[in-house]
Design a protein around this nucleic acid. Sequence first.
DNA 1: CACTTAATGTTGACACGGTCTACTTAAAGA
DNA 2: TCTTTAAGTAGACCGTGTCAACATTAAGTG
Lengths: 199, 199
Amino acid sequence: MAKENKQKYHHGDLRTALINATIEMINQQGVSSITMRNLSEWVGVSRTAAYRHFDDKSALLTATAIEGFRQFSEALRVARLDESKDEITRFRMMGQAYINFAIENAAYYRLMFGDTVIQENEKLRATCDDAFRELLMIIELLQEVKAICCDDPKNQAIYIWSLMHGLSSLVIDNKLQADVELKELMVFIDHQIHKSLSD
Amino acid sequence: MAKENKQKYHHGDLRTALINATIEMINQQGVSSITMRNLSEWVGVSRTAAYRHFDDKSALLTATAIEGFRQFSEALRVARLDESKDEITRFRMMGQAYINFAIENAAYYRLMFGDTVIQENEKLRATCDDAFRELLMIIELLQEVKAICCDDPKNQAIYIWSLMHGLSSLVIDNKLQADVELKELMVFIDHQIHKSLSD
DNA sequence: CACTTAATGTTGACACGGTCTACTTAAAGA
DNA sequence: TCTTTAAGTAGACCGTGTCAACATTAAGTG
C-alpha cells in the first residue's frame, strides 16, 4: 500500500531519488548536463522541490559525491575481503577495482574528486577517508604477512593512492597518448609497485 | 605610438588579453567565477567582443589550458636543462617543479587536466604531449647515464606522471588527511621512485 | 477525531550568463 | 578615395539557479 507509482503530491523519498537521478544523469551525460530543472523533471517533481532537501545545487552534488565514495569504498572492500584469494592477489584486485570504478563511472569519479563539490563538507571528508582507509588496511595486512616492507603504512597508502588516482584521472580525462595499451601499462605499474614496496 | 592605454575602439590584441585575464581570474577565484561578461569588463571591452576570437566560452577555456601546458612544459624544461646539476638531481627538481606548479596554480592546473576544456582539440593534445615528453626525456637521459633501469621509458614516464598527477590532484583538491606533511611525504615518494626505477 | 503545525511540493518572478543577430567603427588593400 | 573586411558594440532571447509566497498533506496533540 505504501508505494504507488501514481503521482502523489508527496514523493516519498525525494532526497534519494534526486541523488540517484544525479548519478544516472552524470554518468550518461556528464556533470554539465545536470540542471536542477532537468533533474526535477526526470524525477517527476517541480523545479524547486529539490530545495526542500538541499540548500542549493552544490549541496546536492556534494551529497551525490558522498554516495559515490560509499559505493567506491564498497567496491574496494569487496576486493579486500575476498577470502578465496591470498593477500597480494587481493591487493592487485583492489587496484583493478579502483581503475574499473573510475573508468565505468568517469564523470561520477570526477565529481567525487573534483572541486565542484563543497570541499569543507564533513561527511564528504569522512567517506573519502573511509575509501583511503581501505587502501591503508590492505597495506597493513600486507605488512603483517611480510609481503611488503615495513615503512610507514600511511605513506605507502598515499603513494598507492596517488598512483591509482593519477592513472585513473589521466585515462578518463584522455591525457595519455592514443597508442597506450592500458592492460600492458597496468602490468608494468603493478611491477613497479611491487619493486617499490618490497624490502 | 603603437600602444596607447587610452581606450581605442580596437583593442590591439584582445585574444591574448582575454587569455591572460582568464588565467589571472581563474587563479584568484576559480573556474566558476569566470563569465564572458566579467572577463570582458575586466579587459575593458563589450560583453560579446570575445566571440570575434573564440567560438564560445569553452574554446576560450581550451585556449587558456593550452597556454597552461606551455607554461607547465617550460617550468619542467627549466629544471630538466639545469646543467649545474647532475641528472638525478634534475629529475628530482622536475618533480618539485611539477608539484609547485600545481599548487601555485591550482585552478589553472585543474582546468588543464579537467574536462571543462574541449578534449578533442589538437593543439591541446599537442601541448599536453609536449609536457609529457619532458618527463620522457629526463627518463631517457637517466637511462643513458645508467641511473635507472632499462625498462620501456614510455611506461616509466607514464608511471611517474601518474604519480605526480595523482599526488598533485589529491593535494590541491584537499583529499589528503589534514595531518599529512607534504614535505616528508615527498621524501618518501622520492624514495619509492628510486626503488622502483633502479635495477 | 478535529485542529494545529511542520514538512514537502508548486508556481511566479528575478537576475545572471551564454550567445545569436544586426549594426558600427576603423584598419587594410586596391 | 573607395571598398572590403576584421574587430567591437548593443539588443534580445533563452536557459538556469534560486527566492518568496502559496498549496497540500503528513504528523502530532488535545
